[in-house]
Computed example of a mutant assay.
Amino acid sequence: MKGKTTHAASGRPTARPTITLESDTGPAITFPGIQYAATSFFEDDAVTLTRQHLYRAACGDHAIAITSINESCRLRRAYRIGHTGEECTLSDGALTIAMSTSLLNVLVDALCGIDHEQQRAACGDSSPEEAPAL
């Protein structure tokens, strides 16, 4: 049942809500799906609040909405991420980029400021680095 979930109490299929992610850098991205995670953080140096919402589309793709807000402006960005084996595509609705899943993991780590070697050293772990799965 593509695009449907089953209501636990009745067992009847229930349509997933339509989600629209607005973007200031491209067209809105619309899909049936659910939000499964959200986070926010404040950057003191930039005086900016950033919120991230993660979604799973009914077709199995993922999407992320990122909103950054500071004293003078708000910037909304939205991306859809599709996976096919070891390859993935990122799309903001105007531009689509294909890359390996391992490269996407490296980019996410860099954007999030994750230094796996530093984390392992702080935890006393000397095992070889493995890229985390998305």
Results as ranks from 00 to 15, higher is better:
Ala98Phe: 00
Ser72Met: 04
Ala94Thr: 14
Arg76Thr: 11
Thr96Gln: 15
Ala133His: 13
Phe41His: 08
Ala37Val: 10
His116Glu: 12
Ser91Glu: 11
Gly113Thr: 04
Ser91Asn: 09
Ala46Gly: 06
Arg74Gln: 09
His62Ile: 00
Ala110Phe: 10
Pro132Leu: 08
Val108Ser: 03
Cys88His: 02
Cys73Trp: 13
Ala133Glu: 13
Leu21Gln: 02
Arg51Asn: 05
Arg120Ile: 00
Leu95Lys: 13
Ala110Met: 10
Ser102Glu: 05
Ser102Asn: 05
Thr25Asn: 14
Ser127Met: 02
Glu22Ile: 01
Leu49Gln: 08
Glu86His: 09
His7Cys: 12
Asn70Trp: 13
Tyr36Leu: 10
Thr67Tyr: 03
Tyr36Gly: 08
Asp24Gln: 04
Ser126Lys: 13
Ile69Gly: 01
Asp45Leu: 12
Thr5Asn: 10
Thr101Gly: 05
Leu103Tyr: 12
Thr18Leu: 08
His7Tyr: 08
Leu54Gly: 13
Thr14Ser: 12
Arg74His: 03
Pro128Leu: 11
Thr18Trp: 09
Asp115Leu: 07
Cys73Ala: 14
Cys112Arg: 03
Ser127Lys: 09
Arg56Thr: 11
Ile64Glu: 09
Phe41Val: 00
Glu43Pro: 00
Pro27Cys: 02
Ala122Cys: 02
Phe42Ser: 14
Ile34Gly: 10
Asp125Gly: 05
Tyr55His: 06
Ser102Ile: 01
Ser68Ile: 04
Ala121Lys: 14
Ala57His: 05
Thr18Lys: 09
Met1Gly: 12
Arg80Asn: 09
Asp125Lys: 04
Gln52Lys: 07
Lys4Asp: 03
Thr67Gln: 15
Gly85Gln: 06
Ala37Asn: 14
Lys4Asn: 06
Ser23Thr: 06
Glu71Phe: 14
Cys123Thr: 14
Leu134Thr: 11
Leu103Gly: 00
Asp24Thr: 09
Arg80Phe: 08
Thr39Gln: 13
Met1Arg: 10
Ala65Phe: 02
Ser126Thr: 14
Ile66Thr: 07
Arg56Ile: 12
His83Tyr: 13
Ala78Tyr: 04
His53Tyr: 11
Ala15Tyr: 07
Ser126Pro: 02
Asp125Trp: 09
Ala15Trp: 04
Thr14Tyr: 01
Ala110Asp: 11
Ala8Met: 13
Pro17Ile: 01
Glu43Phe: 07
Phe41Tyr: 13
Arg74Glu: 11
Ala94Ile: 02
His83Asp: 11
Ala98Glu: 13
Gly26Glu: 08
Ser91Asp: 12
Gly82Ala: 15
Gln119Leu: 15
Ile114Gln: 06
Ile34Glu: 14
Ala65Leu: 06
Cys123Arg: 15
Asp115Ile: 09
Ala98Ile: 00
Arg80Ser: 10
Gln52Asn: 07
Asp61Cys: 03
Cys59Tyr: 03
His62Pro: 01
Thr67Phe: 06
Tyr55Gln: 08
Thr30Asn: 10
Ile66Ala: 06
Ala131Phe: 07
Glu129Cys: 02
Gly33Val: 01
Leu104Tyr: 02
Leu95Gly: 00
Pro132Ala: 11
Leu49Gly: 03
Leu95Glu: 10
Phe42Gly: 08
Thr48Asp: 01
His83Gly: 00
Thr20Cys: 02
Asp92Ile: 11
Thr50Asn: 07
Arg12Cys: 05
Ser102Phe: 03
Ala15Ser: 05
Glu71Arg: 14
Cys59Pro: 00
Pro17Ala: 04
Ile81Thr: 04
